[in-house]
Design a protein around this nucleic acid. Structure first.
Length: 274
DNA sequence: ATATGAGCCTGTATGC
DNA sequence: TGCATACAGGCTCATA
């Protein structure tokens, strides 16, 4: 659901809609999120000076009085939405957090499944322990076949499981893992260490390529995902294998197959992917 | 150490 | 129509 392209799309929306804005107050309506929404009571008077992304996490930089939190850290989980709405807009059932802003607007955090969170950090949000141990950013310029080789060598797990492991490569979730492996022509259950170097080059390009294309399309909305302005993504119709069980492969016409790998639904073309 | 599976959580779809 | 069940999958934790 919200994987790297969706989080990046939300980030860009927040930059556009909220840069430089001031938080007047924050209201916690439901604290039982993935992590406790610590520090949000102390945000009055801070200014939102920047929005960054690391993996599937959103980081906000804050300018405020001494002692005020310096950052926000958020994760959308599966159904989390960060949206900018008019002050006092009708509340949805799962609007858990309300950030009242200057300019008569609110930033709302809505999350039906409560797998996500937003919290304030005393120091830079980068220092939060949740970010320790994360793997490589696939859109960094040095993400290539050699980088993937370091990730995949000696690894007996299915390659799909490996590229979804956030300690190895970040931002790739269930949807884009299937899509990237299709692009690279690699079977999702192939042991990671059994992939030749030339094919790892292809896979690195495929991962970065599908993520870039999805960002360009504003992310993929299957059901829940919305950007910071409340709009769905436009990339779902471009997916080549995800959710297409039994439908013809767009490349060879063979029926797309669904299997469970590492406990996750996995989609692939049994003819194009080896 | 790595690898696998359960659990968190609610809305939606499916089967009876 | 209603009920039970399975599934969705981000991550964390426990176990093998």
């Amino acid at each position: 659901m919200p994987e790297l392209p969706e989080v990046e799309t939300v980030r860009r929306g927040l930059v556009r809609l909220l840069s430089g804005r001031e938080v007047r107050a924050c209201e916690v309506r439901e604290p039982r999120l993935r992590r406790f929404p610590a520090g949000l009571a102390d945000l009055s008077g801070v200014r939102l000076s920047g929005f960054r992304r690391r993996a599937k996490y959103l980081l906000a930089d804050l300018d405020g009085p001494a002692g005020a939190p310096r950052g926000l850290l958020a994760h959308l989980g599966m159904t989390g939405r960060l949206r900018v709405v008019a002050e006092g807009a009708p509340l949805a059932r799962h609007d858990h957090l309300r950030f009242h802003l200057d300019g008569d607007e609110e930033l709302r955090y809505e999350d039906a499944r409560r797998f996500g969170f937003v919290l304030a950090t005393p120091g830079p949000p980068d220092d939060h322990p949740a970010l320790a141990g994360l793997g490589r950013e696939p859109l960094d310029p040095d993400f290539d076949g050699a980088a993937l080789h370091a990730v995949c060598r000696d690894c007996r797990s299915p390659v799909k499981v490996r590229i979804m492991d956030q300690r190895q490569v970040v931002g790739v979730g269930n949807i884009y893992a299937s899509e990237a492996l299709f692009r690279a022509g690699i079977h999702p259950r192939r042991p990671a260490r059994r992939i030749a170097a030339t094919r790892l080059d292809l896979l690195a390009d495929a991962i970065a390529g599908v993520l870039r294309d999805a960002i360009e399309g504003g992310g993929a909305t299957l059901r829940d995902y919305r950007d910071a302005a409340g709009r769905p993504g436009r990339y779902a119709v471009r997916l080549r294998v995800y959710g297409r069980t039994g439908e013809p492969c767009r490349s060879c016409g063979t029926a797309i197959r669904r299997e469970v790998t590492g406990g996750r639904a996995t989609y692939f073309c049994p003819r194009c992917q080896r």
